[in-house]
Design a protein around this nucleic acid. Sequence first.
RNA 1: GGAGAGUUGGCAGAGUGGUAAUGCAACGGACUCGAAAUCCGUCGAACCGGUAACACCGGCGCGCAGGUUCAAAUCCUGUACUCUCCUCCA
Length: 426
Amino acid sequence: MLDIKVLRAKPDWAKEKLAARGVKAEEIDDAIALDDQRREVIMAVEDLKAKRNSASDEIGRKKRAKENADDAIKEMREVGQQIAALDQKRADLEEKVNYILVRLPNFPADDVPMSLDENDAREEYKWGNIRQFDFAPKAHWEIGEKLGILDFERAAKVAGARFVYYKGAGARLERAVYNFFLDEHYKEGYEEVITPYLVNADSMFGTGQFPKFTEDVYTITNEGEPLTLIPTAEVPLVNYYRGEIVDSAKLPISLTALSPAFRSEAGSAGRDTRGLIRMHQFNKVEMVKFCKPEDSWNQLKNLIHDAEDLLQKLGLPYHVITLASGDASFTSAKTNDLEVWMPAQDKYREISSCSNCTDFQARRAQIRYRDENGKPQFVHTLNGSGLAVGRAVASILENYQNEDGSVTIPEVLVPYMGGQTVITAE
RNA sequence: GGAGAGUUGGCAGAGUGGUAAUGCAACGGACUCGAAAUCCGUCGAACCGGUAACACCGGCGCGCAGGUUCAAAUCCUGUACUCUCCUCCA
């Protein structure tokens, strides 16, 4: 959530920044105008409350002295009604200001390409040599099905489209990949966490998915509060400290978690209909950081490094891009995507998204630390995939495929596969 | 699922209608070569408004949300969570 005070102090700057994210200037004007009204009402009602407080004090004194206070009580009865009316007005105005504020995205950082077109992402650098095949590389779903390690058909029967069964060496490869990821993050100092996979609406609000993106997720109700299947472990990880003032000596805090991610993929019908790229349920290892504001850009670099280190160790070619302002997620000030090379598609595909959310989530979720003066300040939050497991498996299958249909296991995963070096058809 | 108890500041802990005791901690000072102990003083989270302000004034503030009242930590309703016992369960 943005700070209304920033909108008030720098309206033109705010409009320009948010225009690059598709926000109309009128929305900012509306928010400020409503906030003006809100402040007026606050002044009026607090004036009356101060009056009531001192009058009540006086009434109490008289009552104790057994004096008559009927006149003051009668007068305060009227004041009470005025207060109730103004309080209602104030609540209405607050709701209106809030309605706009919670739907405004984060300000893009200064070095983000200012464009609504996702094609204006900036490539930062490439890593790895793209393998030249002396045969036509197959798509990962074809490889997986032929090896009997991926079963999309039965998953469709049992659950529906965009689900998959991993079997045998496929299931073990998936497990090898995420264990490798978690172990590497552990070595880098991340604290490993196993989180709830169902979260409440306050948590979804805290990380910015709600109220705008309710259609992207699965929400279930069981006689009571609705719970949402997490679309990413970012939600339970960031909300871990919701409403808390964390010990500043512990910052930066780095957490990592493996979890399934559940996404409705509403609006993406027809895209990536085959394979592991776009599923309703997929495994992802997520990294989340909490830090002081002055440290967050440095931590974003660390996050990217920790993600790309995995790709380098797996020997998978990738490049790093900075998303255009209009393409970055709602909560992000700057997002760097890691895109891994997919030979069959002859292009890079997103495998990690690393974002600095600055104080945007912290303000929603009320996550703070105390500065040198003991004053609470919002932390900065960052999140990044490290990495999407299914997409990593897909990339391994494609990049490490052999002409006979077998797949060589990347060296770093061999210990995780119990020494197995190649997956062949049974 | 059933029954009971609880939730007050950084921590502990009083307060059953008159506007949040007290202790510890913290901060400032005195004493001391310095520290500890002791003494004196200050401070009661966070948030909002006046407002640009860590000053000052006011509002708000006793798990949360409502209600009653001139006035609510206190009374009423709803609700979340924690603990204990029973039941069930991997």
